[in-house]
Amino acid sequence: MVAYILKRVAGSIAILLLIMVVTFLLMNAIPGSPFLTEKSTPEQIALAEAKYGLDKPLYVQLWNYIKNYCVGDLGTSLKMQEGTPVKDIIFHQGKFALSIKLGACALVIAVLIGIPLGCIAAYYRGSWIDGLLRVLTTVGVAVPTFVLAALLLVVFSVNLNWFPTLSGSLPDAKSYVLPVISLSFYYTCYIAKLMRTSMLDAIHQDYIRTAKAKGVKTHILVLKHALRNSLIPVITYLGPVLAGIITGSFVVESTFSIPGLGKYFVQCVLSRDYPVIMATTVVLSALVIFMMLIVDITYKLVDPRITLTAKEE
């Protein structure tokens, strides 16, 4: 187990390096410069680029990034107030915390509602309950987040005035409701669909019949035998979702005017704030990789047949 985790961590570092290189190259492949505005003259641009080392060859720039990251220096922003450290922007100004808070709520909702919905649909397969849930979840997966978010905003904030239109920094419980619903709806529906399929698969297995032959009651049959055996696909899906959902959604954060990381990240790409793009990508990637590791370890807990080994077979 320890050997397995160590091997995974080593692999993760290699992946992160690769991500840095690719991000850096892509970043530079986009035309434009962070200092390009209508007013600036070529001389001014050249001066600014020299100041931040952007005139040096690409490999030197890349090497500087990697060197600095190794000692935990994420660089300074090119666009925010002169010389604001990127670390402060991401971690200290609460952007990251805001996105995590929002995402964690959405995730909990998606799991707590999605899994039971899937079980119910599978249990009542073929009935009107199943039909209704199928329509609902298909719509949920098909409707884009921005449509749903805008719709919720118009109906519940503008017309009914139940919830604030601007969620801002999520000061109270009310401000959470609409963004969390918008963010979690897709995932809830997707998890419900996944759960239904794998639950149906499990219900038709022989060991369910075995349990029935033993005299196990129906609800225990579903909860104890079928549920445990059908969770694997959902857990697999949760890994990337976990990372994606808590690192913030640009759409939801923009619609509800939440100053989170997702919104900020997109702004940085548009304004070519290289150090911030780089740092955000690396932090998010590290998070995704970490979540994947957690998911793989969870497999082992859920399914004893899965063995985690450090050796390739």
Binding site: Q205, H225, D303, P304
Partner: peptide, 19 residues
Amino acid sequence: YRRKMQIIFQDPSASLDPR
């Protein structure tokens, strides 16, 4: 009657709950 009537299934690996 589940106490009195039992069944042995064809596929032994599928008929035992893997968890």
